[in-house]
Nucleic acid binder design. Structure first.
Lengths: 145, 145
DNA sequence: TATACCGTAACACTATTTGTTACGCTGTGG
DNA sequence: CCACAGCGTAACAAATAGTGTTACGGTATA
């Protein structure tokens, strides 16, 4: 099954950036994600287009958040990476004029709309600040253990 | 984005089989789906394993439903094709020990569980008989137009 | 026994994501 | 003013998944 991974990876990065507060280079982010700087730039570019981060070239440049983690939801990140729709209903297109195929597609479409709504609702409820808090809390708990 | 298509295609085929009532060969099903018999056998084999259809070899053989369309839900077909889980949360696995990554993954997992439940609920509500009825109705409507 | 089916393995083709290299542009510090 | 550290982007390789195709074997029926 498809595993995009960019959403989780970008949340990971943004939360780190928010917690540390500073600017990060593509190089350092790439190390965080076990990948390389070009992949990072490709993906971060989408976030920049949606105003979540900004980049500066030249010496001392890098990426930084444009607003605090408390004002970024998972849905914001998702939309920046992939657009409005998260789930695509897997429809068939073998005989577009066949009423049976159309009826099957319609039902699938409705079901996926319901799932899409649930997902968007959940994504909108969660800010990156929350993710950071959970991470800090579990880090504390593990230190005590 | 990923587009599996097998679910929609199999619903399409099963409804046709139910409406026509008879046995279909892989060859004829392949024509319905604009594909070829081997692909059909591969996919139908999953449905057979879950008791939705049965196959007979030899002259006059082919595929047939084991029960009426009213007793097959979209969820049944989905499970036969892919197993219990429909949606996989796209998690990251770059630094499994990083609390931030884990917190992000946890939140995504929860959101996807919510979507998964919505999807399963919808899939379970729809029988293939319903799909057939809708198809018959729209076919009628179009004939009148 | 010939034929019309399914069962299955093996391989090519395609599309998508990811990784990698290369090269150009820009701003800063010396 | 120039070397360097950073991003921007194109181009291409690699891995993965689904799909299409060929080939060959098994089986039931006329």
């Amino acid at each position: 099954m498809r595993q995009d991974g960019r959403l989780a990876r970008m949340i990971h990065v943004l939360v780190h950036m928010g917690l540390l507060g500073g600017r990060e280079t593509s190089e350092r982010i790439a190390q965080m994600l076990n990948t390389n700087p070009v992949v990072v730039r490709r993906t971060m570019a989408s976030l920049r287009q949606h105003g979540i981060v900004e980049s500066e070239g030249g010496r001392g440049g890098g990426w930084s958040l444009t607003r605090p983690l408390s004002e970024i939801t998972i849905l914001d990140v998702q939309r920046a990476l992939q657009g409005e729709t998260i789930l695509d209903a897997p429809l068939s297109n073998d005989h577009p004029s066949c009423p049976v195929e159309r009826a099957a597609n319609d039902k699938l479409q409705l079901a996926y709309q319901s799932a899409e709504q649930a997902l968007q609702r959940e994504f909108q409820k969660v800010t990156l600040a929350e993710v950071g808090e959970i991470a800090m809390a579990t880090a504390q708990a593990e230190k005590r253990a």
